[in-house]
């Protein structure tokens, strides 16, 4: 198939970007979307042009690196990561618009590559259980019912790609933050720091400039790992409970 691509090109974070059009031909429907971009980049390189920079790594839907808005939707038309999107979802002659995540807290570094270090800083604020290496009890001394373990796993499966932020009209990071808060709030291991965690992580989320959550659910609708909106409800419960009896001064 042949496609008309329209791609955001931006030299670096200090320059203005714009959409640039390219034509790619003979695209095989078995290719992944990123392999289609590889073809474009090889063409550009041979012409001596600068290839399109985009984050990607595992190409099997788990590392969370790939991050592009395709025809207005984070990761494109199917609910998956960009690397797991295949060209069989496109038709010859299609116009395909490819943009980076758009959010003030994710500045563009070049082309489709954005800076998502805000997510790391939110985890650093409290997305952990404080246990030093070597001080753990025997694993089976902490029994956890299968249903709870499964629920915690569902929250823990977040890959930190940022599609939730890109999908949200307010660029809110609530789904990402709530997934970690919920996972650890459900588990006995996380109980001791539960309140402190909710307060610190949410404070950091606000400090990074992410927008407020207005419960439209666009984040959960686009999440490639199906992180559920109930995580946000749980986060709000945790937050209110923590604030009422705040440990932080």
């Amino acid at each position: 198939m042949n496609l008309n691509l329209h791609i955001w090109r931006q030299k670096n974070k200090d320059t203005k970007g714009k959409m640039v059009s390219y034509q790619v031909n003979d695209i095989n429907e078995e290719m992944s979307f990123l392999e289609m971009l590889d073809v474009l980049n090889e063409d550009l390189l041979r012409k001596g042009d600068d290839p399109v920079a985009f984050d990607h790594d595992c190409r099997e839907g788990i590392c969370g690196a790939c991050s592009m808005v395709i025809n207005g939707r984070p990761h494109g038309p199917t609910r998956t990561t960009t690397c797991q999107l295949h060209m069989r979802y496109f038709n010859s002659g299609d116009n395909v618009y490819i943009e980076p995540w758009r959010a003030g807290s994710f500045p563009v570094l070049k082309d489709l590559t954005v800076d998502r270090s805000a997510f790391d800083r939110i985890i650093q604020a409290g997305g952990f259980v404080s246990v030093n290496t070597g001080s753990a009890p025997d694993a089976n001394e902490i029994p956890i019912g299968k249903e709870i373990a499964d629920e915690a796993f569902n929250s823990a499966t977040c890959i930190g790609c940022g599609a939730c932020v890109a999908a949200c009209k307010n660029a809110s990071a609530s789904l990402f933050v709530s997934a970690k808060i919920s996972q650890l709030a459900m588990l006995p291991q996380g109980a001791a720091e539960r309140k402190r965690r909710a307060e610190s992580m949410i404070a950091q989320m606000d400090a990074e400039g992410f927008g407020a959550c207005t419960n439209t659910g666009a984040c959960a609708a686009e999440c490639p790992k199906s992180i559920d909106l109930t995580n946000i409800a749980q986060m709000n419960r945790e937050f209110i409970g923590a604030k009422l009896t705040s440990e932080l001064v």
């Binding site: 246990v131 753990a136 009890p137 694993a139 019912g145 299968k146 373990a149 996972q183 588990l187 996380g190």
Partner: peptide, 17 residues
């Protein structure tokens, strides 16, 4: 032991182990 203490959600049986 270490990973469980960190909150890693390993697969479990109904009895919680």
């Amino acid at each position: 032991d270490q990973c469980v203490a960190q909150g890693v959600p390993f697969a479990r049986e109904y009895g919680g182990l």
